[in-house]
Design a protein around this nucleic acid. Structure first.
Lengths: 140, 140
DNA sequence: ATGGGTGCAAAGCGTTTGCAACCGG
DNA sequence: CCGGTTGCAAACGCTTTGCACCCAT
């Protein structure tokens, strides 16, 4: 999304970093992805745009994106770590342990419940995560 | 706990494996731990009982324990993977991102809400995970 | 005696890093 | 030109594995 790219550029300015072509290309491709993407998948997509880019730069860019909150690392226990672009609305995940399908969902009730629990234990929440593992409609 | 050790022995018989001393020692030490423990911490504790045991065997034993559901791997984003012994009541976690404190809690509401969500999307749940990250009472 | 279990060291895997070349400001 | 950025390969940390020996059955 345009917004994300803007936010990245603002972060780059803030930290006095440089607006390099590779970084911008990687970020752009990453923001375009709908799904959760692995590092290798991202590299492959990026190579279409610019074959010279190496794995290390993809890692470095993803780390930068995580730093400024534009990429979220997800480690569903499906074997490999994935990343998803930031979106304003927090959401949680349903993961099919058979076919690997991932459904994102938002539940107001979950959010409220989390706050209630945090309050009970005197915690001030910064982040939270809920993952439901099971079999999807087709697989069960 | 005694129960867990029994369960392990039954699993070993079932799979026609052997009741080896090292394995039993590792399992025993592991079941005695209250907290979440890392592989290295477990090795250290085990070495007190039997200094000859190596890291590989600890890994192999933990994998066996996971296989039969007696150990649960937890990867809170605190840098290192930990394991906790199985206990009958499912619980979720509050993690302090500053001091690393981990509170286990059980919430009936969370369990019910999870089932409700699974139902809505046609999923049949096998497992779920809720992790709340933030600052604990002391750290905030 | 058979074949699983073990310790050790080597290999594996995903990720990070040191370096020299490169390039943006 | 200065110093961040890159690609490459080497290094890293954690985990698994190949092997020869050990031990439970």
């Amino acid at each position: 999304m345009k917004d994300n790219l803007d936010k990245l550029n603002r972060y780059i300015d803030l930290k006095n970093l440089r607006h390099s072509t590779s970084r911008e290309q990687i970020a752009q491709v990453f923001f375009e992805t709908q799904d959760h993407i692995t590092v290798d998948q991202l590299l492959e997509k990026v190579k279409v745009v610019n074959p010279k880019i190496g794995l290390a730069t993809v890692y470095r860019t993803l780390n930068l994106l995580q730093e400024c909150g534009l990429a979220i690392k997800r480690d569903f226990e499906t074997g490999s770590v994935t990343f998803e672009p930031y979106s304003d609305k927090h959401h949680d995940h349903l993961i099919c342990t058979n076919c690997g399908e991932i459904i994102e969902f938002y539940s107001k009730d979950v959010e409220e419940l989390q706050d209630k629990i945090a309050l009970k234990y005197g915690y001030e929440l910064t982040d939270h995560k809920m993952e439901l593992y099971g079999l999807c409609k087709q697989c069960k």
